[in-house]
Amino acid sequence: MITHKGTQEIRTERLLLRKIQPEDAGMVFQWMSDPEVCKYERWSPHPSAGFSKSYIKEVFGGYQSELTYQWGIQLGDELIGSVSIVNVNDYDQKAVLGYCLARKYWSNGYTTEAVRAVVRYMLSEIGLNRIEASHSVNNMASGRVLEKSGFVLEGHAKDYYCCSLGLQDSNLYGITRNQL
């Protein structure tokens, strides 16, 4: 049975996963304005901290719903990225995972640590049965995050989504409650 609780704080060994607040705009802008971070994303780099603040207010407004699952990844006093669960489907008991991390924190295991915690929360606490994710075949680091987080490669899709680089072939992954 699915019991929606929305974005709750989650602590891991090194991180605090928490709601993103309007006062985080400067930190959010640091990674969401980086063209390298945004290279395979479906959105363009943020043009200003003000734009980031508007984005956060839109997300923050969504926290009023227990169906909103959007975490900031906090390391020490700094917000360094985000993890989200979208397209939650109660009937099929599944959702889609997304994540983003500031470039200067890449290759330290932070994304994997955050993803594992969110997946555990969504499958164990919320009651979803399945979480799906995909990545451009050109972004192999994203695939490594998914594999280290317990996701299983389920297939390959031609021209699956569009980003600033154009249409991207993608690898499709999934994890179920039984795989935890």
Rank of each mutant, 00 (worst) to 15 (best):
I73H: 11
C100K: 05
S107F: 07
P45Y: 03
V59Y: 06
C163S: 15
E58A: 10
L165E: 14
N89W: 10
A133F: 07
A114R: 03
K57Y: 11
G98L: 02
F51T: 08
T111E: 09
C163L: 12
A117R: 09
C100D: 03
P45C: 03
G143V: 13
K53R: 15
G155R: 11
A114E: 06
W71M: 02
S124M: 14
A141N: 10
Y160L: 01
A49E: 14
D77N: 14
Y63F: 06
Y99H: 10
W71D: 02
K57H: 14
E78W: 05
G76W: 06
L172K: 14
C162D: 10
E125D: 15
E125H: 05
S142H: 13
V59H: 07
Y69I: 00
S44C: 01
Y121R: 00
I73F: 09
N138T: 05
L101C: 02
M140A: 15
S54Y: 07
V152F: 11
N138D: 11
I56G: 02
V118F: 01
R130H: 13
I126Y: 00
I56D: 02
V115A: 04
V88F: 11
K104G: 06
W106I: 01
A117Y: 07
A49C: 07
Y69H: 00
G166Y: 03
E113P: 11
Y161R: 08
L172V: 14
F51I: 06
D77F: 10
A141T: 11
T68C: 10
R130I: 06
G150W: 10
N138S: 08
E147I: 15
N89A: 08
K104Q: 14
I131G: 01
I56F: 03
Q168Y: 05
K148C: 12
E132C: 14
K104W: 05
G109T: 15
G155S: 11
H46Q: 06
S52M: 01
V86R: 15
N138F: 12
G155Y: 11
G98T: 04
S164C: 09
H156W: 12
L167S: 00
D77M: 12
D90V: 12
G76E: 08
N138I: 03
L67I: 09
N129C: 11
S149Y: 02
V88N: 05
V59P: 06
Q74S: 05
H135G: 13
Y110I: 07
A157C: 03
E58V: 11
Y63D: 03
L165D: 09
I85C: 14
L128C: 01
N171S: 15
W43T: 15
I56E: 01
K158I: 05
D90H: 06
V115Q: 04
A133E: 02
S82I: 04
V59C: 08
G50A: 13
Y110Q: 03
R116A: 02
N171P: 13
Y105M: 06
N108A: 08
A157T: 02
Y160T: 01
E132G: 09
L128D: 04
M140G: 10
L146V: 13
Y110H: 09
H46L: 08
N129W: 10
R144C: 14
L75H: 11
I73Q: 06
